[in-house]
């Protein structure tokens, strides 16, 4: 029931704002789940996470090679450090979150992977927010 509320609230937020969207799984993921079946969802999620991080890494390289980066570097932080801090946080948080999840249909590993994907997409969105030359979508 809570899951339904969650999606309802999220949908309302998304409809109201049009800014922050729920994570949209890629077509590759959808095809993967269709072809491998729900029982093998974990491997599809792991591949989806890899694709997402490839996009984050590409975005990072793009920023680091741009003139903008010199300006941002004066803050004393690198994007690499920022990425590591986010990774440290989400890996720890998602482990806890998966452990407390109420879901009869999934196992904790699947929940954790799903959590990691959603939080990874937050980093992508946050970086895109400071980089308006990137289309603000994921």
């Amino acid at each position: 029931m809570k899951r339904r509320y969650f999606f309802l609230i999220l949908s309302v937020l998304v409809m109201n704002t049009g800014i922050s969207r729920a994570y949209e799984y890629s077509q590759e993921y959808i095809n993967c789940e269709k072809s491998r079946g729900y029982a093998n969802q974990l491997s599809c999620l792991q591949e989806e996470k890899i694709r997402l991080w490839q996009r984050i890494d590409e975005l990072q390289k793009k920023v680091e090679s741009s003139s903008l980066y010199n300006g941002l570097k004066v803050t004393g932080y690198t994007l690499e450090q920022q990425k590591k801090n986010w990774n440290d946080y989400i890996n720890s948080f998602c482990t806890y979150s998966a452990a407390t999840e109420c879901d009869d249909y999934r196992n904790p590993e699947v929940n954790k992977e799903d959590c990691l994907i959603k939080f990874s997409s937050v980093l992508l969105e946050a970086w895109q927010d400071i980089l308006p030359e990137e289309p603000n979508r994921y």
């Binding site: 809570k2 999220l10 922050s20 969207r21 729920a22 939080f119 927010d129």
Partner: peptide, 16 residues
């Protein structure tokens, strides 16, 4: 932006 980013993530993480 920050309100909605925050709210969307809170919803993602915490259900209701």
């Amino acid at each position: 932006k920050s309100i909605f980013l925050g709210m969307a993530v809170i919803s993602l993480a915490t259900s209701a």
